[in-house]
Nucleic acid binder design. Sequence first.
DNA 1: CTAGGTCCTAGAGTCGGCTCTAGGGCAAGC
DNA 2: GCTTGCCCTAGAGCCGACTCTAGGACCTAG
Lengths: 144, 144
Amino acid sequence: MARTLLTIGQVAERTGLSVHTLRFYEKEGLFATPVRRVRGNRVYGEGDLAWLHLCTRLRASGMPLPAIREYAALVREGPTTLHARLALLKTHQQRIAAQIEELSSCSALISRKVALYEQQLATGGNDPLLPSPPPHQENPSPSE
Amino acid sequence: MARTLLTIGQVAERTGLSVHTLRFYEKEGLFATPVRRVRGNRVYGEGDLAWLHLCTRLRASGMPLPAIREYAALVREGPTTLHARLALLKTHQQRIAAQIEELSSCSALISRKVALYEQQLATGGNDPLLPSPPPHQENPSPSE
DNA sequence: CTAGGTCCTAGAGTCGGCTCTAGGGCAAGC
DNA sequence: GCTTGCCCTAGAGCCGACTCTAGGACCTAG
């Protein structure tokens, strides 16, 4: 059963999290199952690794630590909380979708800006302060 | 030419930024053109609004303040910096694309998790405290 | 037996990005 | 003249998420 037991250093290496961060996450209650100790030292199993992997993905998608803590608490409470967990994950999914949409719209705006710059470089590259053509400017400086 | 001159309060209302944040941004050098004063009070024009709109989009897509400051400085320097600005924006575009990819992959992972939960709810869902059937633990090792 | 490496706890420090407070000015309306 | 409301500056405070330090234990190799 208990093959692949890892020290905190090994887990750090494997997850990309720092040793500090692992202890910090534990202190913050992010672990679904309590981290075991052997002579005071933390010992991690494969389940812990999988859980940490999920945590890093949740973090990477912007879930704040308190939300992950909440999720971990639900997991600890057992299968009666499946509905709650499902709801939590689905809510987070929606936030991710919203984030992606926001990023896409920003990207579109920047694309327009880029196109404008490229056009300026192509056409008016010789004239520093182009006077008339399209009334769109950098940030229409003398507009007032 | 000088229609629509706005006070800081009006700009705050219009941009969704707080008055504090507007002053803070100015102090941080985020404005491409210096904010004008009338009897000590800040006065904003349409160009400023457009610029702030761009800033909020850049921020929303994760560009840090120092990068925006850098961009603003390039704009201030005039049309000789078009290439540099273009490069900056393109780099940021790439970071946005990377962010979207990351979010998508997180979303996919969570979708798998959600499907798993829904399956669990469907099969073993009639009994709140299901005792034995699948000894499936929360952090399942098998998949990843 | 000492040096090196890894581990521990408790708590302080850092950083980015705001957010707010203190203390005050100025103009308009009652 | 006094209150109201918006503005100002300088600087402190806050929050999230780490990141690091101090001070110490244990184990192994030389």
